[in-house]
């Protein structure tokens, strides 16, 4: 016996095509990828510099509240996108000094100042910043470098 074919009721949504999630997921993934790629570039604390390459550098995992000092090619100091004079830098370093010591007086071992200097910056300008760090008893520093694998990729 032939089965009687039932024509779906156009008014009944549940009987029709289901809600298609594909475009929404696509758009979501697109946005995630877009913001993943853009946030790295739009980080205002990092000035656009050509960093030097170091083979023995370790991966940098950002610590919240860490002080990041950019030393530009001409020797200017930039923190959070703003140029700072030596006097202003000293104020920032004094605040960092207070923040780097816990209530018990111990220093946070992982809290190192990150100095980002252009590969063509004169060492004297970096040394000046290092000198000010020393003046404020901030001994732990780290120099930002470029990933050697990525730099090879860029060269080719």
């Amino acid at each position: 016996m032939a089965k009687k074919r039932v024509r779906p009721d156009p008014a009944d949504c549940s009987a029709g095509a289901g809600f298609d999630m594909t475009p929404m997921i696509d758009v979501t993934f697109l946005l995630i990828i877009f913001f993943m790629c853009v946030t790295e570039r739009a980080d205002s604390s990092k000035a656009k510099l050509k960093l030097p390459v170091a083979d023995k550098a370790e991966k940098d995992t950002p610590i919240p509240g860490r002080l990041l000092i950019n030393v530009l090619k001409k020797g200017e100091v930039e923190i959070m996108g703003q140029r700072r004079s030596d006097a202003e830098l000293e104020d920032v370093l004094e605040l960092e000094r207070q923040a780097s010591v816990s209530d018990t007086g111990d220093e946070f071992p992982d809290r190192a100042i990150l100095i980002r200097a252009d590969e063509q910056t004169k060492y004297g300008d970096v040394q000046r910043v290092m000198g000010l760090c020393m003046k404020h008893k901030l001994w732990r520093i780290a120099f930002a470098t470029k990933d050697p694998i990525m730099s090879q990729y860029e060269r080719h």
């Binding site: 570039r41 960093l51 170091a54 940098d60 020393m134 001994w139 930002a144 990933d147 860029e154």
Partner: peptide
């Protein structure tokens, strides 16, 4: 977009 997102590395030092 991936090539632009080159992760930064660091060299630790002590003054």
């Amino acid at each position: 977009l991936q090539p632009f997102k080159s992760p930064e590395m660091k060299l630790r030092s002590e003054l």
